[in-house]
Each structure stands twice: as structure tokens, then as C-alpha cells.
Design a protein around this nucleic acid. Structure first.
Lengths: 230, 230
DNA sequence: AAGGCCTTGTGAACGAACGCACAAAGTCGA
DNA sequence: TCGACTTTGTGCGTTCGTTCACAAGGCCTT
């Protein structure tokens, strides 16, 4: 019987800026919506409007924005430009983020050419692939280098964010090399779990997982209907 | 503390199958991990092993699996094949899901060629694009049709899941057409919010949002370090 | 046959997140 | 200037999700 004498006491609220993870995940949504509103010529926006434009509930919007400080004007709303700037700053998008994409298959191609990166401060600092036949090809204005160049690109371009778009079998070794070279955040598109040191951040996107979740709900609806019909 | 008797409080078990959303989102993860274990020749797996292979915590694994019924053997673990079948059935992956992909740009290409779909029961039943120059091109064994064909493909192939990989500007109108034609689940890659009737399911994937969340944590780490150094 | 060992299944405590509802605070019209 | 109106900011109850910890249960060795 191991006495519960360990210290399972993670100081959740460590007195520092403690903006909840769930709120962080919504900030990019607001930013996107605000971009649209700004283009439409809006100068101020209420929490209700922003909520509609970003697909969340207005109380949540207000609470999330309150974590950034209270910059709204009661009776009026928020200043669009100020909010854009505030959110961008909070997310760290006011600086340049060099990104290295590893694996230039179909998905890597799509990512390299994705317009949504540049507008948020992400710059494709390099593309690498293990296939020599792909080296030299230019994608989205950047030439593909060989996988061997991974370390030198990370160092030369001060890359801190790596994107893995390789097959699952290669992902872990690529990840290890990225981390060893100095990358501290990884976005993983390969369908596998990555092991990284605790101070390295990882997020994963698995296209087929999203479809499977959709299928679950789809099936459930059908079963429910069938059940009623029976 | 002995087991409290007194007033037994069944934990709000709504007589119907009430498997929590968070658990559903993890089932595909388990399924993937189990695939790997099966290939490695494992016939049984403990919650601890499965947890390691899918990157979650073992208590969560056990609780999630318990929603599917109790099919583990104490002292041994779970039967891999049985678990695969059980999860697949729960997710509705034992049937064929025809999928229509709209927008065959870089991303649409990647999706059409993505191997992770077929192995989970998803079949690309059609590809459509608004650009006549793309019509006829073959991607992943399926020919691209014109956007005009959207409705007829949905009906002919009994498509219930649509994937939107168009620019944001086109997404809502495409979505409306999908829904009108009978699609009841939508996976949206366009960076915008979609309005749909309540009975239609939508999930979204925004590549740049994931990067922004990474950037937030990355920045935070840097600020923290700088703060200590100061 | 019996006891030890391992792993499941789950009650219960904890914590995070959500959303309501409302007071506070500012604007705008008269 | 004043009062009505609008919208923010947030305290609080509720729901959802995670984690701990342990009794129940089954296998295997002796």
C-alpha cells in the first residue's frame, strides 16, 4: 500500500497570468472573425456580434476577453482594431514565427501553400523531405531541401516550430531530430503518438479522427430514427 | 472510509446510452493504437499499455472502455480483436460511409489521397470543384466532377458526409447545397463558421488555429524564461 | 485447493468550463 | 443636465471531465 504521501499538488493557479486553455483555443477564432468584421468596415463590435461571427456564446466571449484585461466600453462594445491587436499580442502573433515543414507529400504541399499561415505571422522557413526526387522542387515560393538539412535549417533560421507531415513510421525519428536541433513546439499530422521531453509542446491533427467522430454522431442519429420508426 | 451505504446515488445514469463526448473523441485514438498492437502480434492489452500507446492516462482508458460495456478480464486485460470490433461498432465504422469532397485544391488533393480514410470505412464517393479546368482530373482513383454535379452525386451515392475544402468565401453556399441535397454531417476545413440546421453535425479543422495555439505556449515559455533571467 | 498477484471497473473527490443573470458603467437623445 | 438604454464584466450555480484509490474478480503458481 503506497501511502498517498506523494505530492500530487500541481499548483493550478500559480498566481501568474492564468488564462484557461479553453479560452486560448478560442482566441484564434475571435481573431479570424474580427478580421472579417474589420474588412466589412466595422470599427466596434459587441460581444453578441462577435459571438455570432465566431460561433460561440456571448457570455463566453465576454469572459474570454476579460482575461486579456477589460478594454470594452459598456453600452458600446469593443474596438475592433484594439481587440485584434490585443489578441494577436496575447497569442504571440506580433512576432515572426519561422516554421519548418517536414514531409512534402500531398499534405505537406497543402500546408506549404496554405495562405492562412503568413497572415498570422507564420513564415515557412524551410521544407524538407526524405525523397531526393523532391529536393529542389519549389512549393509556395520555397525550395524543398533534403531531410539531411533539417538540423542546419532549424539552426540557421532559428526555427522553434516544426510541422510533421510525414508517414507515421517516420514521425518519431523526425520529431527527435527536430527537438534535438532546438525546436520546442511541434504540430503533428502523422497518425501516431509522439514522445517528447516535457518542455516541448505538441499538438496533433488527425483528419480521420474528425471523420470518425462525425460518423459516430451520424450513426447515432440514424439509430435513433430507426428506433423511433420501429 | 468504508464503502458508504446509506442512500445509494446512481450517478445520473440517464437510462439511454450516454457516452460522454470527450470519450467518443478518444475512441479513434484507441482504435489506432490497437491497430498497431494487433500488427505487432499482441492478442491482449492492459489499460496501462493501451494508455501508453494512445497517449492518454490509464484510468481514463478504463473508464472510456467501460462505457462500451465491461469486456476486460481482471488480471489480464482486454482482448485486442474484440476491442477493435467493439470500438469500430460504437463509432459506426463497420458500415461504409460514402464521402463527398468539395474543393480540389491543395488540401482537397491531400484529403482525396489520404490513406487513413479507406481503412476506417470511409469511401471517397465523389470529388467536385468549381474550376472547369480541374474537371476530369483523376485524384486517388476518382475523377473530379464539376460543382454542378454536387446534388446528383450526393443522391446517387447516398452521401451523408460532406467535406468542405474550398476557400472560405465559397464554404457557406457549398454547405447549404450539401445540406439541401441530404448531407447530414459536414467536416469543414474552410476558415469560417458555418450555419446549418440543428440536426446537421459539423466539425471544423483549422490548420492555422492549431499553430496559433502552439505559438501562444511557445511565447509563454519564452516570456517565462526571460522573466526569470531578468 | 488455496493463496498471491495482477488488472479491471467504479465510487467519489476534485477541478475546469459553461452559461445565466444582473449590477455596474458608460452612451446618447431630449 | 438627466434619464433611459445598451452592453460590459463577473459572481455563482451547474454540468462536464479528469484523476485517485481501492474493492472485486479472475489467473496462475505452488
Amino acid at each position: 500500500m503506497p501511502a498517498a504521501s506523494g505530492t500530487p499538488r500541481p499548483p493550478a493557479r500559480s498566481g501568474e497570468r492564468g488564462i484557461p486553455e479553453a479560452a486560448v483555443a478560442r482566441l484564434p477564432l475571435y481573431l479570424r472573425a474580427l478580421g472579417g468584421l474589420a474588412e466589412a468596415g466595422e470599427t466596434t463590435v459587441s460581444s453578441e456580434e462577435l459571438a455570432a461571427a465566431s460561433g460561440v456564446n456571448s457570455a463566453k466571449v465576454r469572459k474570454d476577453l476579460s482575461y486579456l484585461g477589460s478594454y470594452g466600453t459598456r453600452g458600446v462594445g469593443y474596438d475592433v482594431q484594439q481587440l485584434v491587436h490585443l489578441i494577436a499580442r496575447e497569442l504571440g502573433l506580433t512576432q515572426d514565427w519561422p516554421v519548418l515543414i517536414v514531409g512534402i507529400g500531398n499534405l505537406g504541399h497543402a500546408l506549404a501553400g496554405y495562405g492562412g499561415f503568413a497572415s498570422r505571422g507564420f513564415r515557412v522557413a524551410g521544407l524538407v523531405d526524405a525523397d531526393p526526387a523532391r529536393v529542389g522542387e519549389e512549393v509556395g515560393g520555397v525550395a524543398v531541401s533534403h531531410l539531411d538539412q533539417l538540423e542546419s535549417i532549424v539552426r540557421a533560421e532559428q526555427v522553434s516550430i516544426g510541422v510533421i507531415a510525414t508517414p507515421a513510421a517516420a514521425a518519431q525519428s523526425v520529431c527527435d531530430r527536430l527537438v534535438a536541433a532546438g525546436v520546442t513546439s511541434v504540430l503533428n499530422f502523422a497518425p501516431c503518438v509522439l514522445a517528447v521531453p516535457p518542455q516541448v509542446g505538441v499538438r496533433k491533427v488527425d483528419l480521420s479522427i474528425e471523420l470518425q467522430i462525425l460518423a459516430f454522431h451520424e450513426q447515432r442519429r440514424n439509430v435513433a430514427v430507426a428506433g423511433v420508426a420501429t
